[in-house]
Amino acid sequence: MSVALRAEGLSKRFGGLKAVDGVKLQLREGEILGLIGPNGAGKSTLFSMLAGSLPPTSGRFFLGERELTGLPAFRIARAGVVRTHQIVRPFAMLTLIENVTVAAVSCGRDPDLGRKALEFAGLFDRRREFPQRLTLAGRKRLEMARALATAPKVLLLDEVVAGVNPAEAQEMTRLIRRARDELGISIVMTEHVMPAVMSLANHLLVLDAGKLIAEGSPEQIVRDPSVIAAYLGKAHAT
């Protein structure tokens, strides 16, 4: 299978702190790549670099054959790599349908894609309301619908399951699976809710203190001593 998104030696340095340190990453087409790690491991920083909101200190990344390193966020979005935000950021002044339509139009897609994305996320009936009226779970689905409205090739999901109740988490998990299976979108997701990421991801990367410490299938990762050490401390890693 061909590669959708590829990064080599991606690093981000904030002064003396290496937030992300030489990360190599490969997302195959039609797959979900899970990115896990304790708080402060650099997951969100890595996402911000891939989405173009933070320029990497060094390293390169590619969508298929096309290099995206150094492009501004809106160009990367138009090229087909779109992110969602860990802390939801809907356009408060726009109705739901406008939120998604503006995304579709700005990426040069058919405005109708906005409607379809809203239907997909189960928010179409509330299209004329403002995001403020939605629950957190609703806003997370809007965040996802807005990203889907741009017809992305690669979706970067930053903790879209975390922080909602179990029923909503299941609904969200279903949505992510459908995005991969029905829409054929390749997905990178970070997540703290392990059941979700374990059931969804085809492949997992584990990040700790900016470095990649393990990678493999979900089954391999849960048994990896270095992963257990990163999460629970070295005493548990035997």
């Binding site: 966020a73 809907p90 990203a147």
Partner: peptide, 16 residues
Amino acid sequence: LAIKSDVDAAGDVGIS
């Protein structure tokens, strides 16, 4: 209005 709401999020969905 999207830019007015959140300029960075606007960039993330392709608005220049």
